[in-house]
């Protein structure tokens, strides 16, 4: 039994310490967003955020996660109250089959957390580990740029409010 903090909530996990985070999220916590793509750290479908960094959940065993904070796409927002990155992907219609998209979004989110105004080259470099087979790349790039703008606007308005 181990405590794992996911999307701000403590969970008691009954799984072997060698269990990759991906299966804990999907099987124990019934979360959908992190996807099984290869199990080998080659495709990025399983990307989640751990302590602010994009991490491949399929090669990250539970034993590494003591005391760390895990965030999945579910933890960012909902259909009715989407996070900027989610709004951006909806507005850009940045999906075809969409299987890779959750991983793309989490990696992009981690980038935007540490670099709120990335250049196009920086976004491409960051997303290099993640594969998309439908060929939605152009839209994904546009969506990440849009998310950066949305976050910027959200920050600006939050600052304006707090300034009043």
């Amino acid at each position: 039994m181990m405590t794992l903090k996911v999307n701000g909530q403590d969970n008691q996990i009954d799984a072997d310490p060698d269990t990759p985070l991906l299966y804990v999220l999907r099987d124990d916590l019934k979360l959908n967003a992190a996807k099984f793509g290869c199990g080998l750290g080659q495709c990025g479908s399983c990307t989640v955020i751990v302590d602010g960094k994009a991490v491949l959940s399929c090669v990250t065993p539970l034993v590494l996660l003591k005391g760390k904070q895990v965030t999945t796409l579910e933890g960012l927002g909902t259909v009715s109250a989407p996070a900027p990155i989610q709004r951006a992907f909806m507005e850009e219609q940045a999906a075809q089959c969409g299987y890779c998209i959750a991983g793309m979004m989490m990696r992009a989110q981690a980038l935007l957390l540490r670099n709120p105004k990335p250049t196009d080259a920086e976004i491409r470099a960051e997303l290099q580990p993640n594969l998309c087979r439908c060929g939605t790349h152009m839209r994904i790039l546009r969506a990440v740029h849009r998310a950066a703008r949305l976050m910027d606007t959200a920050d600006a308005s939050a600052n304006a409010r707090s300034g009043q």
Binding site: L40, G41, Q42, V50, K53, A54, V55, L56, V59, T60, L64, Q128, P129
Partner: peptide, 21 residues
């Protein structure tokens, strides 16, 4: 750091663990 994919060519890939360890 792992071993990054060489674009478009068969090449070994190893994920880096800097962000998870």
């Amino acid at each position: 750091s792992g071993v990054a994919a060489v674009a478009g060519e068969r090449s070994p890939i190893m994920p880096g663990f800097a962000d998870s360890m």
